[in-house]
Design a protein around this nucleic acid. Structure first.
Lengths: 160, 160
DNA sequence: TATTGTTATACTCTATAACTATA
DNA sequence: TATAGTTATAGAGTATAACAATA
C-alpha cells in the first residue's frame, strides 16, 4: 500500500494509487475514531440513526430495506440493532402485511438523541470541512462514489 | 449522517456534508470488504506489510515509528504484529541501542508474500481506478489529506 | 521518573453457516 | 421452496488501564 517500488515504467501511476488507498485507509480510521470520540457514536450507528430519522420513514423502515440502504449484512445489522435497542434508541415491530418482516423505527428517546446529536454533528462539520469550497465537496463526493463503484466491481481471479 | 432536515437556511451546505461523510463511510466499508475478499489481507495488514517492504526500512523499523506511521495505538499494533508473526510474515527483534525498543521487519517469507500480493494489488488498482484520470487522483488525494487533517483537529466541547 | 512495549479486558464490527417462522 | 430475520461462532480491530523492563 505504501510501497512505491514497481518493476515497470509506470511507477508514478502505481504510486498515486498506493497513496490514494493509504490515505483512504487513514481517513477511514480517523472517521471511526473521531466519530466515536467526539460525537459518542460509531459511524455505523450514526448511519443507522440518520437513515431512521428521515421524514419519509417516520413510520419505520423495513429491516431488509435498511440492510440494503446501509450495505451491511442482515446478521450484522441484527447485532447493531440489538445495541441500539439496548440503548432504547430503536425498536423493531412485526410488520402487519408480512409477518416475517420487521419494521425498524426510532423511539421517542431515539429522536431526542438524534436531535441532540445533530448539534454536535453541525459543529463537527463546521470544523472538519473548514477550508473546503462547496464545489470541492461536490467533486469530492463524485470521486468517492466513482471509486466506491469501481472497487465494488473489482474481482481478482483466485489463481495465486 | 443521511438526515437532510436542518432548521436553518443552509440546508444544502449541510446536505453535502452528510452525503460526503456517508459516502466516505461506505467507501471505507467497501475497502475493508474488497481488500479482505479479493486480496486476502485486511487494509491494516496491507498497510503494515507495505510500510515494512520499503527499501529504506530493509533493516527493520522501530515499533514506535511504525505506530506513528500507521496511526494505530501501541496496543493495537502489538495485536496486529502478533497475527503477522503467527503467519510468519514479520519478526520483532530487540534493538541494540535501546534495549526497550523493538525493530520490526519482514521475514523472507513475508517478502515473498508481499511480492505475490503486489501482482494482485496491481490488478486491483487497474480495475478499481478505471476511468480515473491521473490528475483526478492527485486532486482526490489532496482532498483526502485535507479532510483527514481537518477531521483530526476537530474537537467538540463535551457539554451535551 | 519517563518511555517502550506487553498484557488484560471489554466492546464493536464483520463474515459465515445454520436455524425459525412465515410466505 | 424461498424469504425474513435470528442465533451462534469466530476473527479482527479498537480503546483503556495497568504492568515490566529499560532508560
Amino acid at each position: 500500500m505504501s510501497n512505491e517500488q514497481v518493476s515497470s515504467q509506470d511507477a508514478n501511476l502505481y504510486a498515486i494509487n498506493n497513496r490514494l488507498v493509504f490515505r483512504l485507509f487513514q481517513l477511514g480510521n480517523t472517521l471511526d475514531r473521531m466519530s466515536s470520540k467526539e460525537l459518542g457514536v460509531s459511524p455505523v450507528h450514526w448511519a443507522v440513526l440518520g437513515a431512521l430519522s428521515r421524514e419519509q420513514v417516520r413510520e419505520g423502515m423495513l429491516f431488509s430495506d435498511l440492510t440494503e440502504y446501509l450495505g451491511v449484512s442482515r446478521q450484522n445489522l441484527d447485532g447493531l440493532l440489538k445495541r441500539l435497542e439496548r440503548d432504547s434508541h430503536v425498536i423493531r415491530l412485526a410488520d402487519q402485511q408480512d409477518r416475517r418482516a420487521k419494521k425498524v423505527m426510532l423511539t421517542t428517546q431515539g429522536h431526542v438523541f438524534w436531535e441532540e446529536l445533530q448539534l454536535k454533528i453541525y459543529e463537527f462539520y463546521r470544523q472538519t470541512f473548514e477550508g473546503f469550497l462547496f464545489d470541492d465537496k461536490v467533486t469530492f463526493v463524485h470521486f468517492l462514489n466513482k471509486l466506491n463503484n469501481g472497487m465494488k466491481n473489482t474481482h481478482i481471479s483466485p489463481k495465486e
